Computed example of a mutant assay.
Amino acid sequence: MTQPPITMIDYGGSNLRSAQKAFEAVGGRVRISDDPDVVRRAERLVLPGVGAFGAGMEALRRRGLDEATREAVGRGAPLLGICLGMQFLFDESDEMGRHAGLGLLPGRVVRFADGLLGPDGRPLKVPHMGWNEIAHDGCHPLLAGVAFGAHAYFVHSYYCQPAERQCVLAWADYGGPFAAVVARGRVYGIQFHPEKSHRVGLGILRNFVTMGEGG
């Protein structure tokens, strides 16, 4: 059966081509659009993101893509936020001031604290950059085939604090646990870079492409 096309939201601040190529590598059919009408009618959405939260949300609002995304999700379209795109899903962020997000998942985005220590007692640098293990219970179809303790590639200074524990599908640890993969209904988010995370990242993208719309 042909899978529904993926509409990748272009708000002017994302490295869309690498995400597009990663989805196409696992059989996804991707169209990139900055048209709110296209986003509003999309069958399946992906929101990649890089850069600063406030500037990204302002770009989404300026183009009318924030409301279009909410409308698409409201009528049942699955949405996957990637990296900063995952952070956009939440209520607000503390990055360089206080900025409202899309409000699709309850919670906040906060900065890693200074003075974090690793398991060996050595100081940890911010941003969190490089390979890290993700831990999960293996029950959600988005993580099908991903081993407990598999490694993914992260680059971020801010992380999500979901208000509901059940929203967290997978954790990673950087001076303490933080949400690496989240979901609520048909809204999903991954904090790491899937296109740089080899089999783990591509496996999650494949799961998003192929899993039933009920999630």
Rank of each mutant, 00 (worst) to 15 (best):
M1Q: 15
T2D: 14
Q3R: 15
P4W: 11
P5K: 03
I6C: 06
T7H: 06
T7P: 05
T7D: 07
I9R: 03
D10N: 13
Y11I: 07
S14I: 04
R17P: 00
S18R: 06
A19S: 13
K21Q: 14
F23Q: 07
F23M: 12
E24M: 08
A25L: 13
A25G: 09
G27E: 08
G27M: 08
G28E: 02
R31Q: 15
R31K: 12
R31E: 14
R31F: 00
R31H: 07
P36G: 02
D37P: 01
D37E: 15
D37R: 15
D37K: 13
V39G: 02
E43Y: 02
E43H: 10
L47N: 03
L47F: 09
V50S: 07
A52E: 09
F53N: 06
F53W: 00
G54E: 10
G56V: 01
M57Y: 07
R61Q: 14
R63F: 02
R63H: 12
G64F: 08
E67Y: 06
R70C: 12
A72Y: 10
A72F: 10
G74E: 12
P78C: 08
L79N: 09
L79Y: 09
I82V: 15
I82R: 05
L84Q: 02
L84R: 00
G85T: 08
M86V: 06
M86A: 04
Q87V: 08
F90K: 06
E92S: 14
E95S: 12
E95P: 09
M96H: 15
G97K: 12
H99M: 11
A100H: 08
G101S: 10
L102P: 05
G107Q: 05
R108W: 04
R111C: 02
A113H: 14
D114L: 07
L116V: 06
L116N: 03
P119M: 00
G121D: 11
P123D: 02
P123H: 04
L124N: 08
P127K: 12
H128Y: 08
G130E: 06
W131I: 12
N132C: 03
E133F: 01
G138S: 02
C139L: 14
L142W: 03
A144C: 09
A144M: 05
A147W: 01
F148P: 04
G149S: 07
H151I: 00
A152H: 01
A152W: 02
A152E: 00
Y153C: 05
F154N: 07
V155I: 15
H156T: 03
A163W: 11
R165N: 14
Q166S: 14
A170T: 05
Y174T: 10
Y174L: 11
G176R: 11
F178P: 04
A179W: 12
A180Q: 04
V181A: 13
V182D: 00
V182L: 05
A183C: 13
A183I: 01
V187W: 00
I190L: 15
Q191S: 05
Q191E: 09
F192T: 08
H193M: 12
H193G: 10
P194E: 05
P194F: 09
P194W: 08
R199H: 15
V200G: 00
G203L: 03
I204E: 01
L205H: 01
L205I: 02
V209Q: 02
M211L: 13
G214Y: 00
G214K: 13
